[in-house]
């Protein structure tokens, strides 16, 4: 009985295995989705961690050394959940056009 032979150049691996990301997935930058960004007033921030816990894209973290919140500009999609959920009202919505590096200005964002 003859076996069905797949030509070498048409062979594909069964399934695909990918390396796991460590801290971020640079293959899918999403900061360029944004038209507005959340801007923090560190003075007024109580580090209540609401923004940290509610951001679906994990773009707010507490820097334990400075005790300040750090924002991730490369991945923030600008959904503004953090602004909505900040009890201290220390986050504001600012249009990307206000920033020299605003993603809407860049010819090729990231």
């Amino acid at each position: 009985m003859s076996r069905f032979i797949i030509p070498k150049h048409l062979e594909v691996p069964l399934g695909a295995c990918l390396p796991a990301p460590v801290k971020e997935q640079p293959g899918m930058i999403t900061g360029n989705w944004r038209t507005e960004r959340p801007v923090i007033d560190h003075e007024a921030c109580t580090t209540c961690l609401n923004c940290f816990i509610y951001c679906p894209d994990a773009c707010w973290h507490l820097d334990e050394k400075t005790e300040q919140m750090v924002w991730n500009a490369d991945y923030c999609k600008g959904c503004m959940i953090c602004v909505n959920e900040c009890p201290a009202n220390c986050l504001s919505t600012v249009n990307e056009l206000e920033f020299p590096d605003g993603v809407v200005r860049l010819e090729k964002p990231f």
């Binding site: 990301p21 991945y75 959904c79």
Partner: peptide, 14 residues
């Protein structure tokens, strides 16, 4: 604070 589901995915805003 450590994330295991890291930033960089194509889900909708919010």
């Amino acid at each position: 604070q450590e994330e295991h589901y890291v930033p960089g995915h194509r889900t909708c805003q919010g």
